[in-house]
Design a protein around this nucleic acid. Sequence first.
DNA 1: GCTTTGACTGGAA
DNA 2: GTTCCAGCCAAAG
Length: 111
Amino acid sequence: MPSTDYVSKVLAAVRRIPRGKVATYGDVAAAAGFPRAARGVAAALHQAGGSAPWQRVLGAGGRICLRGEDAFEQRLLLEAEGVRFRGARVDMKAHRFEPRGRARPKGGIHP
DNA sequence: GCTTTGACTGGAA
DNA sequence: GTTCCAGCCAAAG
């Protein structure tokens, strides 16, 4: 399969992330069909440029792995979407996108 | 076609 | 809590 397919799948997975939600590189890679291509996702997103909501993709634990002003911009975009930050990290507890649709947080859910 | 680089990750120190 | 190390994968040169 051509690399273009890989990029397309990654972009598709990223586009599935709803506004106000975020996902890690590993999650996107798994959603695209490559559970261990976290770095590949980064490369694909870099190539895609702004063809996909790259700002919704974060490192493990909700940490921004970008450098310089890109990291600053990503944080701004996420905040504009309603994503909350806890220190230098994103509150994955509240904004982590899960394709599985968490049926029941079991007693953990509380208003 | 091989080597280097990088927007990664998980575990250990 | 941070920092360091080895492993993984894809894009660029």
